[in-house]
Amino acid sequence: MNNNIIQLENVTISFRVPHEKIPTFQEYAIRWLKRRRVSYTYFNALNNVSFSVKKGDTVGIIGSNGAGKSTLLKVIAQVIRPNQGRLYVEGRIAPLLELGAGFDYELTGRENIFLNGAILGFSRKNIADRLESIMEFSGIGEFIDAPIRTYSSGMVARLGFAIATDTQPDILIIDEILAVGDTDFQKKSAKRILQYHNDGSTILVVSHNLDSIKNLCNHVIWLEHGLVKNTGPVDDILNQYLQKDHPAD
């Protein structure tokens, strides 16, 4: 597939929204006896979305709340399978969607490094080899052997970021987590992301902070109501975005 590292063709995600509450066996049986079916409406969070990303690109994804940005990242990370359309991805993905999503708050930081590493698809041995470097980058210090429930939310995010980004991925997917942790850690994580970019990783970022999109990205995809409104070089699209929906004061 030429040199596209990510390619989406007519991807549609429709969520089924029941009109009534989720059926139980009981209700289902009653309905069946009364010959009434549960009615649903379908809501397309993504509607015929097609685009491609070239290796080494940094792509920003913008759009208003509920536009489908997070859903799009989940499709690329293979969390949600498209109802229709095709997804092609080449290379290892580091998903930074919800930091610490796979943490068990009763376990210690160290145990969670292994758990989260396994969730990301690494072998136990691989994690054991990189334990030191993960611990060091997270800056958790002696808290590493305390249960995560005793951590501040910033500490949890730091640990999550450190695990997910310890080895260089082919594709880095980031959903609004650039503002994670304190300024010190923000700098540290931004530095690492830039480093990976310079070393050839492809990066996808969702953010409402247009400045950070402008700084990091060369290409922008503008989503609105599950449709691709426009794509192109960062300056063009950001200008359109600012003028159309948010006219300059």
Binding site: Q78, R81, P82, G85, R86, L87, Y88, V89, E90, G91, R92, D170
Partner: peptide, 8 residues
């Protein structure tokens, strides 16, 4: 490099 293709 791992490849994923929903069509395949």
């Amino acid at each position: 490099m791992p490849k994923y293709d929903s069509a395949k």
